[in-house]
Every structure is written in C-alpha cells, then in structure tokens.
Design a protein around this nucleic acid. Sequence first.
DNA 1: GCGCCATGAGGTACG
DNA 2: CTCATGGCGC
Length: 629
Amino acid sequence: MSNNILSKLNKEQKEAVVNCEGPMVILAGAGSGKTRVLVYKVLYLITEQKVHPGNILLTTFTNKAAGEMLERILGLLQKNSSGVSKSNIPTVGTFHALCAKILRRDGKHIGIPPNFLIFDTQDQLDVVKQAQNTLDISPKQIRPRGVLSTISQAKNEMIESSTYANFARGFFQEAVAKIYPLYQNLLRENYALDFDDLLLETIRLFKTNENVLSFYQKRFIYILVDEYQDTNRAQYEITKLLSAKNKNICIVGDFSQSIYSFRGADFRNLQKFKKDFKNAKTYSLSQNYRSTQKILDAAFSVISNNRTHPVLSLWTQNKGGENITIFEAETEQQETEFIIGKVLEEKMRNPHLLYSDFAVLYRINAQSRVLEEVLLHHSIPYVLVGGVRFYERKEIKDVLAFLSYLSNPKNSVALKRIEKIGKRRKVMFLDYVQEFTSQNLAETKSTLEIMDEVISKISYLSLYDENIPEEKSRLENIKELRSVAVEFSNLTQFLENVALVEQEYPPASLRASMPDKNIKGEKPNAIILMTLHAAKGLEFKTVFMVGMEEGMFPHSQALLDTSEIEEERRLCYVGITRAKEKLFLTRSKRRLFFGQRATNMISRFILELPKEVLEENFIECEPYEPEFL
DNA sequence: GCGCCATGAGGTACG
DNA sequence: CTCATGGCGC
C-alpha cells in the first residue's frame, strides 16, 4: 500500500511526504505538485503512520481549496479501503473556519457566546458609520471605508482598540483611535465578531486559558499549513501556539507567490519559521508539471529581479515549447481584438481547443469593461470571474438579515437593514418574530420552511418584477439561496455556512455573453476573464496578460515603493506561471483612463523577459531608467 | 420610501 | 468616464 501511495510521487515529493516528525518547510514552486504532496502526506500519516485522522489539521487559503483537498483525501482513503467514518476525518479548512469552530465551543471562557454572529464587510461598514454618527465624525471628512481598513490593519498587527491611540499619528489616525473602541463595543453589543476577531479572539482564548490551548494541542498532533507566504501575523501566531507542544508542523509555501501583503500577509513568516523552529528541515519541490521550459525561464527571469526573498529555480521535462508573444496595440480595443484574433487562430490550428482553454488576466477589475465590450461585439463567449459575490447581493443580504435576526435578536445591524426595506415590512416582520419566538419555531421548523414563511409573511418577493431582467435575476438568486437552505436544515448551521463559506458563483451571476449551458457545475465553454489575483492556483493552456504598462502593471500606486514593486513582480510571476503551453503579453500605447487619454510606457516586466524566449518580431522599446532609482 | 442629483474617488480580495 | 454614496424633495 505504501508503495502504491509513493509510486505517484517524484523523489523530492516522496521525501517531503514520508518525513512527518518535527517541524518542516516545503518550498513548493508553482505547478510543482504542492497539493498532491499535501494530500498524500495526510494519506501517508493515516495509512502508514497510523495517525488517527482526527489528530490531523490542514489549513488552506480558501474554503474552495479545503473542499477540494478533503475530497481528494477521502477519495484516496476509500480507494485504499481505509475505513474512515464521517466522525473520523481530518480537519481541513481555513483559519477562519477553524477559529469559528473553536470559539463556538470554547469562546465562553472569554465571554463570547456560542451563538455569536460573524459580520461581513457590509455589516462592518454599517457599524463604522454608526460609530462615526455617534461621535459626530462626518463620513465625508473621514471615509468609513478607510477607517475600516485601518482598523483591520491594526487588528492584523494585533493592536487592540484600547491601545491603538498610543500608535495613532495625525488627523486621520486620531479619528480612528476614537472610532475603533466604539466599533468594537458595537460589535460586542450585537454579539458579533468580524473576520479579524475570529483570529484574534482565538489567540486571546489560547493565551488566557491553558486548558483550552492544551486541549487543541492534544487534538491536533500533526499540523499542515498551506500557502504560508500569505499568512498574516495572527495566523502565524495561531500555528505557533497550536504546534508548540508536539512540534509536528509542516508549512508549505513559495516566496515568489506572495501577493496579499496589502491585506496583512507577510512572506517573512516563511523565513521566521526557521528561527522559531531551529531544527526545521527544508524540502524543495522544483520540478514543474505545468508549463513549458520557455514559460518557466520567462518567469524566473522576471522574478530574479526581486531582492528581498529567495527564488526557486524550476525545471521541467517539457523542454522547449512555443515562444512568448509580445504585442503592442495602439488602443485597448485593438489589444482585445488581437486576443480574439489569436484565440480564433489557435482554435483553427487545433480544433480540440475550447474557448475555456484561454484566459485573459488583468491587473484591475476596471480593465474587464473594454474586454467585455469588444468580446460582446464579436460574439465571442466569455465568463467573467469575480464581480459582486453571491452573498453580497442586496436580495440575498435582505433575506439573510431576516434569518439572522430570527436566530439572534441582538443583531441590530440586521434590524436596521430590515427597516431600510420598509417600515411597514419591518412591522410585519416583527409580528412574525413574536410568533417565531413564542412558538419556538427555531426548534421545529427547517431553514427552508422558515425562509419561505418570512418571505411570504412580509411579501418580500413582490418587491421585484419578473418582467424586468435585473429583478428577475434577483428572484432567481433567492431561489438559489433556497437550495442552499435545503442543505442546511438547521438555521444556525445554515447561517454559519453562509458566513464562512465563499459561495460558488451561481449561474445567474455568471455574465456570459452567450448563454451556453451554464448549468450549475458545468464549466461553460467560454474565454475566462479574471484578475491576476483571482488566477492564483489555476492553470490554462493559453494565457493572455493584458495592460502590460507602467502604471497599469506595475500599478501606479506601487511605482514609488520598492517592496510594492516586488509584490507586483510576484504577481507577474504568478500570471506567467499560469500558462501551460502559450503565453501572450500585450500592452496598449494609449489608453482611456478616467476619461482621459493616457500614454504609458511599456511595463518593466516585459523588458525583464529573456530575449531567447520571445517571438522575434517584437521590437524592443528604448530602454528607460525609472526616475526613482 | 423612492428617485433624482451632486459629489467624490478611482488596487488587488480572502474569510 | 463610471460607480457608489448621501442628501433632499416629493
């Protein structure tokens, strides 16, 4: 059986899998089979080391990744006929999901009720506005969004509301110093935590309750952490606390793919690890199974310009491959037309190719508009990944507000939202709340029944007209939410799922220009449009990176800061390494920007590519020295 | 409670 | 230019 598992791995991967005891770092390059190593390591621990599955913790970056990895693990376990029952599976999830579970169970020790709410960004904003209102701080002078991100940043650095004032410098931060404590109080009055609190309160729980910490240390004997380069300080702290006793901690990461420092991620955690665990072993996965050597060479050449972190050199058996094409368009429309031409050309050359083998990656969301317009004009099918998320839609938030208030009448933010829907509807709703609590319906009715009752009691659906396309899609979204409710008949569990789980984009929110068979679960045959950030972890046969201009990519706000430029370069590295077979980099000489025509220089990242891997017809621009150097 | 207009800002995004 | 927000009048 052991051979069976290990035969699927190369030498480097095998080493990383079979060494399980003690602290270790796996430096895993893009496309090097990192997920495979994590999955097989868990499998190896269970089947070979006879570790109880419940003693394994694997943390991931997203819920999606967690779901996929657990599925693979369970599938392989079944294949190896190792009896794993539902109550006997490894814990796989994000830090936030893990912390939510821990706090539901043990938060009471630090005054957090088990039915606490999790406030999302919109709820948080409402709270900030409420706090500013109380303090008479005008939202015009001090923007709530800015306040919120400053508070979040402070929380990421583990600065509490009581001590923030000591660090506050300047007009804005002094305002935040007043708002932050009030914000925190309001959260607590609502029995709510924000996402940052989930992490911070767990740390506080661990630090003040030895027994609780000890319980989880005994439970999670083997800890694996994915995407360690994108952990923030709180997440770093949690892994350290949890692994302090057994020290069986395996972290996986890649410096070159750290692209989330703007939200508190710190790739130096990857370096700190070896200082915290002096005897930590290091394994590197350097064989790439995704791209051609030319693509890898291009990526390496670019990323080698970064000075503040180590860089893995990747190799592949897939030598050669096609050259990388650079295209300089006059306008952004022409840039998109070039893409369409190339897609059709490639499809002609190879009839097996689907539209979905092509991805267009861009730096900022605003770039998608022109792409959509031109694709639409040429009747080329596309899907836009991203945009307004399902659970952030108005109608979904409304229905959730009803349910959330029913589950926890302390939720004043939900009530405020309900009031906004309509005063009369609020009265009708409160009538139902009375009925609901007096008859204790939370115990007897399913989520779906409650949802349907609320919706009909206040005739919520009559707000929307089926004949107006936009409103019809709102009605469809509510239907979609009903199907989620079917999966979670317990109201509390349903709300927990909604708060923590990133929703798949349902069909209605997929903006496809051609209504292909977009049925749930089916990948539509359409060109994929997304930001470079969204592309992390994915791969496509052909990749177009557009807007390769100074000011666009690297982004204008990163130009003056070396560490931000390095992050942009890592983002570029991530983009290049998404391509399996063919890579195009395009730029436009002129571009409409905030209604004005702007002329941008060619991106430095293009000039950092090795000439050997470029199509010959690319005429290099005059080299330039950025002014700030 | 809704719709209209003025104003202002404009990165990336997971839980 | 485009979108989000907030104030105000009906």
